[in-house]
Simulated assay, not measured.
Amino acid sequence: MSILEEHVDVGVPIDKAWESLHRVENYPRFVEGVRDARTEAGGRAHLDVEAGGQAREFEARVSDRSGERAMEWRTTGAAELTGSFSLQPIDKNHTRVQARLEYDPDSIRETFGGPKGFAQANAVERLVRSDLEQFKEYVEQGR
């Protein structure tokens, strides 16, 4: 398994960042490749994703630790991905959003195509960094 951790500081209070992160239906606005997303019963989310020129559907189990401001998720089925988001207040108007992604490089390549090895790690890192920057823009503009 490969592990990637990235963070971004956003200019909103922690409650606003937490609320925005939990609106799964808005993920297409800031997560690259997500065309549609919705919350389903039983702590699950459904995502329609386009990546590597292919459309895919994913189910993920989502669990919250609201008191800790942490959300964990794990895909079910192909392309096993596990991740989490945790939020820490910087001050009353700024929040750090920490993303952690655990993935099997071979599984990612089989599912989405793309490069191998170091090039793949760089591509995943760029994608996560871009998604965090898009989230920052999304939440700070109050959409």
Rank of each mutant, 00 (worst) to 15 (best):
G11Y: 04
G113T: 05
Q141S: 14
E102I: 11
G43H: 01
Q98D: 14
E80D: 09
G142I: 10
E140K: 06
G83D: 00
S86N: 10
R129S: 15
F135C: 02
E57C: 09
E125I: 11
F135K: 04
E137N: 12
S20V: 14
E6N: 12
P13N: 03
G52N: 06
V12Y: 04
G117L: 04
E6F: 01
R65Q: 13
A70D: 05
R129Q: 13
L47W: 02
L81K: 04
G142S: 08
Q134H: 14
V139E: 00
R143P: 02
G33K: 10
L87Q: 04
N26L: 11
L21D: 03
I3W: 09
A60W: 00
H46I: 15
R143G: 10
T76P: 00
E57P: 02
V10H: 03
S20F: 07
R129F: 12
K16A: 14
A45V: 10
S84D: 10
R23P: 03
S84G: 15
E57G: 13
R56P: 05
Q141P: 08
K16N: 12
L47R: 01
A70W: 00
S63R: 13
L87W: 02
P28H: 00
A70T: 09
E140H: 07
H46A: 15
H22Q: 14
G52S: 05
I108H: 07
R56L: 11
K116P: 06
R96Y: 08
R29L: 07
A37W: 00
V10M: 02
A41S: 03
E125M: 08
E140L: 07
L101V: 15
S63L: 10
V31P: 06
I108P: 00
A123E: 11
G142W: 03
F112C: 06
S107I: 05
Q141C: 09
R69I: 06
I3E: 13
D36K: 14
V128E: 00
A70M: 06
A41N: 04
A17I: 03
N26D: 15
S66Q: 08
R23C: 07
Y103H: 08
V97I: 10
L87I: 09
P105G: 08
R100F: 13
V24M: 01
I108R: 03
E32H: 11
I14M: 06
V62L: 08
Q120W: 08
A121M: 08
P28K: 00
R44M: 05
K16W: 11
T76E: 07
I90V: 14
H22R: 13
E140I: 09
S2W: 15
G142P: 07
S63A: 14
R126Y: 10
V62G: 12
R38W: 02
G113P: 01
G52Q: 06
E80Y: 06
D64V: 13
L21E: 01
G67M: 13
G142E: 12
E59K: 10
H94P: 03
R143D: 09
A55E: 14
L4C: 09
F118Q: 12
F135E: 00
G11S: 11
H94R: 15
R61T: 15
F135A: 04
I90A: 07
E137I: 13
L81E: 04
A45L: 04
E110D: 11
V12R: 10
K136I: 10
G114V: 03
V97P: 07
E125S: 14
P13R: 04
E32L: 08
E5P: 04
V128F: 05
K92L: 15
